[in-house]
Design a protein around this nucleic acid. Structure first.
Lengths: 206, 206
DNA sequence: TATTATACGGAACAACGTTCCGTTTGTCAA
DNA sequence: TTGACAAACGGAACGTTGTTCCGTATAATA
C-alpha cells in the first residue's frame, strides 16, 4: 500500500562507504533508543528530557547524539511509520466515501494521530530550525495526499476552492496543540467545524 | 467602558499591611520592568530570556523576581490592559453589526491580539501550572464577553448552538499558535472558516 | 591475532528559570 | 537632622535543560 519505503529503515550509506556494514552494537543501540523513545514519548510527551530516554535505553548520551545528531531526527525516526500509515489511509477512504466525507474522515484520522502525541504539534510548529526536517517529512508525505482529497471534493462541488492543503495541515496541527494526549474531543469538534466551513463556502459564498 | 479596574494597576496589600506605602525605588523598578518586558516581548516574543528583560530594564534578576514571583505574573501584568481593551470592544460591535457579524468581528479582534504576541498562545496552552493565573485572567475576562456574543447570535438563529465560549477561545488561541507575529493571515482565514462552520450549522444540520 | 575504523560513555559546556542572602536604601519617628 | 529598620536591591549560585568533545572500548577484517 505504501509503495516506496520498503522497510529499509536503517539504510546505510549507499554512495561512497559501502565498505563496512553497520556494526552489531550500533544496530542494537539504535533499536534500543527507538524503543525507549517511543515508550518515553508516550508517557512524558515529545518534550521528554534526552537523559530520560538514554537512561531507559541503557546507553550513554554520546551514543544518542551519534545516531541522531539532532533531537528532531529521533522524533522523525520514531514517527515515520505512523506518518506513512496516515498517508496510506487515504485511498481506502476515497473509494468508500463521497469526496467531502472522505476529506472529513481523513482529516479526523490526521487529527487523532497528531493529538495523541503530546508535544508533537508544538514541536512541528515551533519554528525552531532543529525541527525543519521533521516538518519537512510530514509535509512531503501528507501534503500530496490531502491535496488530492481536496481537489476531488472541489471538483465534485462539495467544498470551496480557496483553501490549500498545506494551510489545512498546519491548521489541524494547531488545533491539536493543546490536546493533553487523552482528550482530543475539542480538536475533533473544531476540525468538524472547519470542514463545515469548507462545505458552507461551496454553495453559500465565495 | 471597562467598569471595574480603575487604573489601580499597582495595588498594594489592601488587607493587613496597610502600613508603609510602596517605596519609590520599588515603583520605579516595577515600571521599568514592565516597559522593558513590553519592548522585549514585541521583539523576541514572550519566551524571551529573563536576563534580557532585566538587562533592558537596568535592574538585577532578584528585583524582577521580587515583583513578579513567577514569569507568568510579568506576562499577565504586561497584557492585562490589552485583554481589557479586547473585552471592552464587544459592545460597540454588537450595536453596529448584526449578531453573526459582530461575533465574527470580535473573534477577528481577538485573533489579531493573540497572533500579534509571539509565544503568547503556546504559553497560555502549555499546561504549565506557572501560567495558570495568566490563563485564568484571560478566561475570566473574555469568556463572558464571547458567551454573550454567541448567545445573541444563536437567539437570532444565525449560528449553531452546540459550541461554547471557552471552546472557541481555546480554539482561536490554538489557531494563532504558529503565527510568527507578523503573518496572521492564515489564522484569520481559519477563524473565518470556523465562523462559516458555525453558520452552516444554523440551518444546515445539527 | 593484530589492526583499525567505528562506536561508546559520560564529563563538561552554555543557556535557561529560579532561589538565596549579604548589602544598600527609602521612609518615618525621635 | 539623624538614627533605625523594614523593604528592596543585585547578582552569585543552584538545578535542569540540550549539545559537544574526546579518551576508551570494541566489532569487523586481514
Amino acid at each position: 500500500m505504501s509503495g516506496e519505503n520498503e522497510e529499509n529503515e536503517a539504510l546505510q550509506a549507499s554512495s561512497d562507504s559501502l565498505r563496512r556494514p553497520i556494526r552489531s552494537d550500533a544496530k542494537r543501540n539504535t533499536d534500543a533508543l527507538l524503543a525507549a523513545a517511543l515508550a518515553v514519548f508516550s508517557i512524558s510527551g515529545v518534550d521528554a528530557p534526552v537523559r530520560e530516554i538514554v537512561e531507559t535505553a541503557g546507553v550513554g548520551i554520546g551514543t544518542l547524539y551519534r545516531h541522531f545528531p539532532q533531537r528532531a531526527d529521533l522524533i522523525a525516526a520514531v514517527f515515520r511509520r505512523e506518518v506513512d500509515a496516515c498517508a496510506d489511509a487515504a485511498p481506502a477512504l476515497m473509494e468508500t466515501l463521497n469526496p467531502a466525507d472522505a476529506l472529513a474522515a481523513w482529516l479526523q484520522r490526521y487529527t487523532d494521530f497528531i493529538a495523541a502525541k503530546r508535544g508533537l504539534a508544538p514541536a512541528l510548529h515551533s519554528g525552531d530550525p532543529a525541527y525543519a526536517t521533521l516538518h519537512g517529512y510530514f509535509q512531503s508525505r501528507l501534503e500530496p495526499v490531502l491535496q488530492k482529497l481536496l481537489d476531488t471534493a472541489v471538483l465534485a462541488g462539495a467544498v470551496r476552492s480557496d483553501v490549500d492543503a498545506n494551510d489545512l495541515l498546519r491548521t489541524v496541527a494547531n488545533l491539536c496543540m493543546s490536546a493533553n494526549g487523552t482528550d482530543f474531543s475539542l480538536a475533533r469538534r473544531m476540525v468538524d467545524l472547519i470542514v463545515d466551513g469548507l462545505r458552507y463556502g461551496a454553495h453559500g459564498k465565495a
